[in-house]
Design a protein around this nucleic acid. Structure first.
Lengths: 342, 342
DNA sequence: CATCCTCGTGACAACGTTGTCCAGGGCCTA
DNA sequence: TAGGCCCTGGACAACGTTGTCACGAGGATG
């Protein structure tokens, strides 16, 4: 068996290459390349012959080789926390649409909120030489990205800031949103308000907590021990935290939920209680209108779109100093946040 | 300016290559390759010198070149309908987990239910030489995939069958699920039952309709004109269809919703009405428990996991005839499906 | 009729990596 | 001490594509 044959059986199954097409069409290699890339300088007759050979052989250009030669992969990487989280679906989709408009594909990965996995993913994407990266960070130290950024991989951080590295960021106004939501509860007469949030190492979680404290301080309310709970958004933990705040001699009369997962569990806990409890949640959730849940909404699609547009702007050559964009949030009153204290 | 310099400024920014590392470490090219790939046959001392050069230069292996040489990309493509749809989030995530376990990355794309875009995406992925493809088809003719499959790109179709091409498929039992759901309504006394589904060119939509008809036939009920509506899942259209069925002298007393988007709109329409209307929806939705919505649930994560496992099984060399797996659905009674006719 | 262009085409090198093969040095054994 | 073997390391080609350049034919121009 000669080497050529052995190769064509082991690599990519049996893919014809431009060389094969050229041989069959009786033209040179470069002419095939020209046809495949719609470059000028090929007579219609030659083009037809090449096209016939392409169709007959089922040839398709090998973009790996193309990438190697051209130095651009026409793909961008998106590292987020969990594709299955309803907050990230629309965000991903928005990024994808922008990428598509720029002729790029999207490589996706979930860090599962694990800094090590985030780094592993990001570096794998860099090794693939994605043109750009959009990262929703899990960790808080991103110095490992320095050589990559220096080497020219455009990078935008989303939802949470980057640690120890100077890059573009697109964030939501977590502080302002939470402050507004808590102030809304206070305006409806509440003073004993509980806050249930995500793990404190997550930036948005602490920002929202900061917003809570600011609103309470503005109203001259002293936050008591036991009104604040930060930790995993695991339903069991959230349930325990909520039940604790709602029990005892002086229970809270309202809850502020730090993100969509907390909100969902909080709604369940409150539904099981007799005494009504006011609730405002961060992040909108599907069917919240039917359940009458008041929320602070951030526009996930807008966040994704903005980040992707920034990225492609960089790829198109913009090299101003890294920018930090903060998108506003919206309070949507639907009933649960307007209940008076029981 | 000499050519080498020019190159290193235009390509990938300024990336060092193995050659650069080799020069700096004072070793041969192949030795660097060995270190990078943890191949045996390098003395600890040499390895250390190479590693230092790698760190100093910020070298990272170029996987494009590696792929070209090795013929495997360690990535798989997933083409679905819409990443933002809550049904596909968990599915994607499940696929990703399996891919990760096999050391592969996931390239994601949304067809937006457009057959042309589906084809465009699939072929772009093939040009990248993904090792395998998971496709939730939008179109119904996939002969364009024949050369790709012959060339060795493993392919699994999910959720809907492939058209005119013989490949592995992982489906949910749409027919059986819808039949069970409609039978459930009948068992609770309904005879006038409306069906609102997706566009008839979508396989799952017609299968679910078939299930509806089967259940009605089993009960000896003649389906009247106006009880069935197929079309886009656009809220406006669904709303109009639902309102029409619920009006007039002889309105339906129950609705079967053909998918998650239809269910959401149906819930809204029903909530606005005085007279109670029973409802069973295909696909579970978040908070459906709180709203008391009875659903036919398909396990999106299980579908994705199964498909991905099939795919990697193929990639590991399995070459039995294409299989067709059908996963069962589960009826989850929560109240809305158990209401008696008004 | 000579010269200059233009245009279509193809030969060749290069992209950065890995597989193959060979060379040289140290160690063991006879 | 000679011969053989193992171990480390490097030279080189190849993967499939694209950029550069050169060549030859044919038309236009003097």
């Amino acid at each position: 068996m000669d080497r050529t044959t052995r190769h064509s059986e082991t690599r990519y199954g049996n893919r014809p290459t431009m060389k094969d097409v050229a041989a069959r069409a009786g033209v040179g290699l470069k002419t095939v390349s020209r046809v495949v890339n719609s470059e000028p300088g090929v007579t219609p007759d030659t083009e037809r012959r090449v096209q016939e050979a392409i169709d007959a052989l089922g040839f398709r250009r090998n973009d790996s080789a193309r990438v190697l030669r051209k130095g651009r992969t026409a793909s961008i990487g998106l590292v987020l926390e969990d594709l299955a989280d309803p907050f990230y679906g629309p965000l991903s989709r928005a990024v994808e649409e922008v990428a598509r408009a720029h002729g790029a594909l999207l490589i996706n990965g979930s860090s599962a909120e694990d800094p090590e996995r985030e780094q592993e993913l990001v570096l794998a994407l860099c090794a693939r030489r994605v043109d750009g990266l959009i990262v929703i960070p899990a960790g808080d130290d991103h110095r490992y990205l320095e050589p990559e950024i220096k080497a020219g991989i455009a990078t935008v951080f989303v939802d949470r800031p980057a640690g120890h590295v100077d890059v573009d960021m697109v964030l939501s106004d977590s502080f302002g949103g939470a402050r507004e939501g808590v102030a809304h509860l206070i305006a409806h007469g509440h003073r004993r308000i509980g806050f249930i949030g995500d793990q404190p190492r997550i930036h948005t979680a602490t920002e929202r907590l900061r917003g809570y404290h600011a609103a309470m301080r503005d109203a001259g309310i002293t936050v008591e021990d036991g009104w604040v709970s930060l930790g995993s958004t695991d339903p069991e933990r959230v349930r325990a935290a909520a039940e604790k705040m709602l029990s005892g001699p002086e229970p809270v009369t309202a809850l502020f939920a730090g993100n969509n997962r907390v909100t969902v569990t909080a709604v369940r806990v409150i539904a099981e209680r007799e005494r009504p409890v006011a609730l405002v949640g961060f992040d909108d959730i599907e069917l919240a209108d039917l359940l009458g849940i008041t929320v602070i909404s951030q526009d996930a699609a807008a966040v994704g779109r903005t980040a992707a547009e920034h990225l492609f702007h960089r790829l198109d050559g913009a090299d101003h100093a890294p920018a930090r964009v903060e998108l506003p949030t919206t309070l949507i009153p639907r009933g649960s946040g307007e209940l008076p204290p029981a």
